[in-house]
């Protein structure tokens, strides 16, 4: 059962890394879209995706590492979780804002 648990943990970690990479890829394309098309909506989409997938992933990994190596107390696990959730909220907020910017710049029927 221990081996199974470790395998599941490894898979969960790999999936988390995978979604961080795909999220960062989309964020990177949004950044290129900003550079190529001067579209301000893409700035917030890129920032949102990078915070939502990249920064939260980094924070979660660093937090787990610090706790695992007893650099910080396990009592702070909840604080890390809160920070990750707040960053997710901020990232999604930026994406929602970008959506409204993009809709605002659209020509009706165009």
């Amino acid at each position: 059962m221990v081996a199974l648990g470790a395998a599941v943990d490894a898979l969960a970690g790999a999936a988390a890394t995978g979604s961080a990479l795909v999220g960062l890829y989309i964020g990177y394309q949004a950044y290129r879209g900003l550079r190529r098309n001067d579209e301000p909506a893409m700035r917030y989409l890129a920032a949102g995706m990078i915070i939502l997938f990249g920064v939260t992933y980094l924070l979660a990994v660093v937090g787990q590492g610090l706790i695992a190596f007893h650099v910080v107390s396990i009592d702070l696990q909840g604080v890390f979780r809160l920070l990750v959730r707040l960053l997710q909220l901020a990232g999604l907020g930026l994406i929602a804002y970008s959506l409204h910017l993009a809709a605002g710049s659209r020509v009706p029927g165009g």
Binding site: I26, R32, G33, R35, R36, E39, A41
Partner: peptide, 14 residues
Amino acid sequence: RDVADELTRLWGKF
């Protein structure tokens, strides 16, 4: 077509 341009176009179309 460049993915970044398509993303920009699509995002504006939502």
